[in-house]
Nucleic acid binder design. Sequence first.
DNA 1: TTTATAATTCGATAATACTGGAAATATGGA
DNA 2: TCCATATTTCCAGTATTATCGAATTATAAA
Lengths: 115, 115
Amino acid sequence: METIRNHTAVNVLSALAQEHRLAIFRLLVQAGRSGLPAGQIAKQLDMPASSLSFHLSHLKNGGVVSDERDGRSIIYRADFQAMNRLMAFLLENCCAGDDCLPADAAETCMEGQDA
Amino acid sequence: METIRNHTAVNVLSALAQEHRLAIFRLLVQAGRSGLPAGQIAKQLDMPASSLSFHLSHLKNGGVVSDERDGRSIIYRADFQAMNRLMAFLLENCCAGDDCLPADAAETCMEGQDA
DNA sequence: TTTATAATTCGATAATACTGGAAATATGGA
DNA sequence: TCCATATTTCCAGTATTATCGAATTATAAA
C-alpha cells in the first residue's frame, strides 16, 4: 500500500484547493524567487492577518510554500519543485506504463531556487 | 478580476484533494483510454456504491474524469487535458513573466484521447 | 412483463474546514 | 527598557464535506 504518498499528494492538493490559498500561491508564483512578506500578501489580497496566517500554514504544511524570517517580517515563497512532484505522482504509471511520459513541467522554472 | 478561472481551478483541485477521489483518479489514469466501469472501481477500491458515486460526481464536476454509458455500466475515464490546463494556470505568469516556461506536461500522454 | 444488475439520488449523521477578533509572541528601534 | 510593527495562536461560531444504508432510476435479459 502506498497510502503514504497518496496521503502526501492529498496534502499538496488540498493546500491549493481553496480560493484564498490558490490566490496566495499564484501571487507567490508570480513574485518568483524574491517571495513576499505575509503583510504584503494580506494587503494585496485584502484579508485579515489571522485568516491569512491560517491559510499560509496550510500551504506550508502542504509543502507548496516555504517561509524564512527576515527581521520582523516572514518571507513566503512558492515551491516549484512541489508542482513537479505532484504531477509526477498524478500521472504515475500512466496508461499502464505505455511510456507515454508526461509530468516534468516546472522544471525549467526557477530552477535551483531551493538548492 | 479573473475569479472565474480561479474558481474553476479550485474545482479541479478539490476534486482531487481527497484520499478516495485521488485513488479513483489514479486508477483511471493507469487504466488509460479504455477506462473502467463504476462497479470495477468500487470493487478494486473496496468502497460502497453510494460513496463511490458521490466521489465520482465530484471528479466529474471538476472535469478530471468523463463518463459514458455502455449498457448497464457507466465507463469512467481520466481527462488528461485537465491536468495540462491546471498546471498552466498554476504556473501562469510565473516569475513575473521571465519566460521560464513550464506547464505543458501530460501532453504526450494519451494524446487525442478526447478528440 | 418480471426479474436481475448497475449505478445514482436521498437523507440523516459525523467530521472537518473556514472565519476573524482578541490575546500572545517575536523582532527591531527610540 | 518601552513602544511599535509583523505575524501567529487561540477560540467560538458558522459552513462545508464525507459517509453509507435505503429507496430510486436505467438498462438488459429471461
